[in-house]
Each structure stands twice: as structure tokens, then as C-alpha cells.
Design a protein around this nucleic acid. Sequence first.
DNA 1: CTCCTGAGTAAACTAGCTTTACTCCTGTGA
DNA 2: TCACAGGAGTAAAGCTAGTTTACTCAGGAG
Lengths: 155, 155
Amino acid sequence: MNDPLERTELTFLLGMAFQLVLTEFVREVEAAGYEELRPIHGLAFQVLRHGGATSSELAERLGVTKQAAGQIVAYLEERGYVRRVEHAEGGRRRLVVLTDRAEKHLAVAGRVMRELEARVGERLGPDELTLLRTELAGLIRGLAGADLPPLRPIW
Amino acid sequence: MNDPLERTELTFLLGMAFQLVLTEFVREVEAAGYEELRPIHGLAFQVLRHGGATSSELAERLGVTKQAAGQIVAYLEERGYVRRVEHAEGGRRRLVVLTDRAEKHLAVAGRVMRELEARVGERLGPDELTLLRTELAGLIRGLAGADLPPLRPIW
DNA sequence: CTCCTGAGTAAACTAGCTTTACTCCTGTGA
DNA sequence: TCACAGGAGTAAAGCTAGTTTACTCAGGAG
């Protein structure tokens, strides 16, 4: 064998694996007609998916300033993926909620992810895939503790 | 158990794991006195480490335009991490090579990575770590084939 | 009321690229 | 020998996706 990957640092292995999976994911989602959406928009949908949130809450979950979150919301609103509705607690608060269009994107993105994971499973074998997931979960628990890391990766 | 990570998509698991490891790596390298260097500079050092390269070659390996590579080289040169020397093949070519200062950074970064991997190994157990590495290598081989992905991740 | 806090917005700035458009140098072929 | 094609490098402007600074507005506590 003498695989150069055997001697590659864990950090690089993780980076390459993530990069490959993400690139493939983005490629397929774009091919499904979502060229106007970047990964961060999908992450925003994840945050908003159950009941919505204010843009300040969104900012915190995404790890950006609230101005940046405001720009993202405006971008998504222009294109019909979110609506701003009244917030139950009043004040200046506005609740950002997903439209059907965004729900559909979530469905497509979920399907693409599951297909991608299935393809990886075919190559690795089902037990290996389960093992990989377990090891990754263990690593994440070990480094992050109880609170999961913020959604938005920063390079 | 009922761990929410069990139901998390593989793509997210990889992203979180990479994010956590990278953040910790960056934090420790900065603490060692390298606040002026970003991850891409470390990647450039990896490309240049054995015999150097022209900035066009560097651009290709990093996945950026040659202008961007030129800017990176200029930044590193100002701070004493690289030198531009005559290129054996002449023309307008200039060979960008590392200084001792950059070699020292490579040593420190390597040590930090190995310590980080060792800490992950302690939590996971040595066999688990080996397994994780094997699964990741398999995933990378499966998705990338023979040619490894470019160094620079694009989000 | 007044003042404080937190939500939201506006405008200017910034980093880190890319695009466009050159200037050099050298090897090739008429 | 001499145009000229092509690759290396540089310069300047433009772009994207954010941050910083500085406000306005709404409600609640005292």
C-alpha cells in the first residue's frame, strides 16, 4: 500500500474529506436549480426551520454580526425564501420564517445529503460508515463538550 | 444515549469535526506567536517546503490566481518568511523559497498538529483514532480517486 | 417621564480575493 | 535574424461578503 494518506495529519484528512463532500453537495444542489443560494443560506434555513427566529438570533446561531444576518435575510426575502412576520413578543422584533419555497429547498438538500451519504456507504460498507459516524461524533463530543460548535465554519 | 449527533448528516459531522480541530490548531499556533499568519500561509509553506516553487506554481497548488499568489508571496516576503531567488530555468521565473523563519513555523505547526492528534487519540483511544484515520482515508479515496483534492478549502 | 436595553438599520470601511490589462523574457520557426 | 507566440510576473480596478461605527426605534423599570 504505502498510502501517503496514512502519514497525513488528521487535520488535513478532516479538511479534505469535508471539502470533497461539501463540494459534491454544493454541485448537486446547484444542479437542482439553486445557483442563487450559498451554503450559508442553507444553514440559515436550518436555524429558521422550526418556528423561525429574529435576525439577531439568526446572527448568533450563524456566528455573524446582526447586520450581516440582516443582509442575508434581505437577500432571501427578495428571492421569496423567507417572510418577516409580526413577533409575538412585540417590540422591534420581527420573526423571520421560511416560505414553502425554502421548505422545498430543505427537502431537496436533505435528499442530496442522504444520497451522498449512501454513496459513501456503498464504497465504505455500511459498518464502516457507522463506525466513521461514531468516531466523528466522539471527536466532536471530546472537543466541543455539551454545546455543539456554531454552524458557520470559518476558515 | 439518544445523542442528536447520531441523526446528524455526515456532511455536518465532517464540518463540525474539521471546524473544531482547525479552530483549536489556529488558536495554538497564534498563541505560539504567529498572529500574522493565516491558514493559507501555512498551506503555502507546505507547497514551498521542498525546494520552493514559482508563484505561478504556488497559485495552481493553492487554487488561486497567480495575482493572489503574488500578493501572498509579497506578504510573506515582507515579514521574512520567504525569499525570491534566481530560477535555474531563467526567463522571468523567480523561485520562491522558505527562510529559516518559515521552517521554524513549520516545525511549530507540525508539533501542534501532532499534540492535537494525540489529545484526540487519548479521548478516543488509539485503536479508534486509527480507525477514524482509515475511514477518512477511504472516504477521500472514494470521492477523489488518485489525485488528492487541492489544499485550499473553499466554503 | 426618563433612562436603559435590545432589535433593527444605514453607511462606510475592510480583507482577500478576481478580472482586465499590461510588460517582460525566451524559445521557435519562417 | 527576427517577428511572434506563450508563459511569468505585475498593476490597477472591481467585487463579495463580511465588520465597524453610529444611529433609530420600541418597550419596560424605576
